[in-house]
Amino acid sequence: MFAVQFDRFGPPEVLSVGPFPEPHAGRGQVRVRVRAAGVSPVDVVLREGRSPSAERLALPHIPGVDAAGVIDEVGPDVIGVAVGDEVFGAVDVSRLGGASAEFAVLAFWAAKPASMSWEEAGAGGTSIETATRVLDLLDVREGTTLLVDGAAGGVGGVAVQLAIARGARVVGTGGPDSQEFIAGLGAVPTIYGPGLPERVRARHDGRIDVALDVAGAGSLPELVAITGSAASVVTIADFTGPRLGVRLSVGDLGGEPDGRHGLAVAAAIFEQGRFRLPLREVFPLAQAARAHALAARGPRRGKIVLAVPPGTA
């Protein structure tokens, strides 16, 4: 198969597209012929070698954790799907990649709605899993008021919509140029940064029950002040959180809710017109380096996707 890959850490130019051994579905997995694969900030820091997880990579490495495609292999103990089904989801995240290729093995997935484009589907897997997991941790439900710090990003925008679908009210922070975007997702928008408690009070008349930090911009003390309790705040981006009593959720942690059930929920509310996966830009597989360069630049509003047309070889 052909795949995006790198054999050394560095800038986007270390990426190339070329032959790579095909993966095969293992127990509890499916293999898809990829039609679209997401490009995430985690892919960038791994390629640059800046992530502590980079030392676990066997080079050459295929980046990408999110993919959508047509099932062409079903592993043992998999029920409910068959060869030819259209699905979206993510690879085994412990492998840190493998999606930006002609074929990818998915560890969790859901049926792709017919009205969802391949590009939208390819963007969704881990953002939906992560957002669902942290909403479960915060026990977001009907009547909850949630503050999402970093609501314009991939996970933040998904969390806003999934929380609203649960019946929550959401206040979302972002930069000045993201306010209209955040409002379009259904949240009450406000500017992030110092002075956040005062701005939240000015924009929202009432209590903030819980807060989610997806930006990692040093806002945790303010989020604790806004909610009144460190136990009411979860971060996925600030590793200093536990020192403040804030829960840090990075996935694959014992005792955490399993957010993978969120894929089917997201697909259902997408079909109802209550969920969307905003796209920032779509690139062909051969332009993976350009996609990675864009993913490293802000503002992070919407998802970056690699399209893999049928017959790629």
Rank of each mutant, 00 (worst) to 15 (best):
I71K: 00
A90V: 08
P176K: 02
L138G: 00
A313C: 09
D205C: 09
D92E: 11
Q161I: 06
P310S: 09
D72R: 13
H292N: 05
G75W: 07
A202M: 06
D77V: 01
G259D: 11
L59Q: 12
G228A: 02
E281L: 05
P176V: 08
D72Y: 11
V210N: 04
V140A: 11
D43H: 07
W109F: 08
A58N: 13
E198N: 11
F2Q: 15
L277S: 12
D252H: 11
R260T: 15
A54Q: 03
D92A: 12
R169I: 06
H261P: 11
K112L: 01
I79C: 10
V234N: 09
G259E: 09
T132D: 13
H292L: 08
L147V: 05
G259W: 01
G143W: 11
F275R: 12
R276G: 15
A295P: 00
F2D: 15
S127Y: 09
E142Q: 14
E102G: 05
A101R: 03
A168G: 00
A90F: 13
V14K: 12
G98F: 05
H24K: 14
G157D: 03
V233W: 13
V140L: 03
V91P: 08
V87G: 02
F275N: 06
F9V: 05
R247Y: 07
L196F: 14
L220S: 10
R141W: 01
V34A: 03
L135V: 03
Q161F: 15
G206T: 04
S178M: 04
L223M: 07
A295C: 15
V65E: 13
D139L: 11
S232D: 15
P310E: 15
D92H: 09
D149W: 03
G195E: 14
G254S: 14
I71P: 04
P309W: 07
S100P: 00
R33P: 02
V44Q: 04
V45E: 08
T145Y: 14
G80S: 10
P63Y: 04
A289K: 06
A67Q: 00
A110P: 00
F9L: 01
G28D: 07
V155M: 03
A159N: 04
V93H: 12
D252W: 12
I62P: 04
E120N: 08
G98R: 04
I128H: 02
P21C: 10
V87K: 10
F2E: 15
A291E: 06
G259Y: 01
K303Y: 01
V81D: 06
V14W: 07
P12F: 02
A291P: 03
G184C: 08
L294N: 13
A264K: 09
F270W: 10
A107R: 15
A217K: 13
A225N: 10
G125Q: 00
S100G: 01
S40G: 10
F239C: 08
V200R: 13
P21R: 06
W118M: 01
R8V: 09
G38R: 06
A215S: 12
R56Y: 11
R33D: 14
A268S: 14
E48A: 11
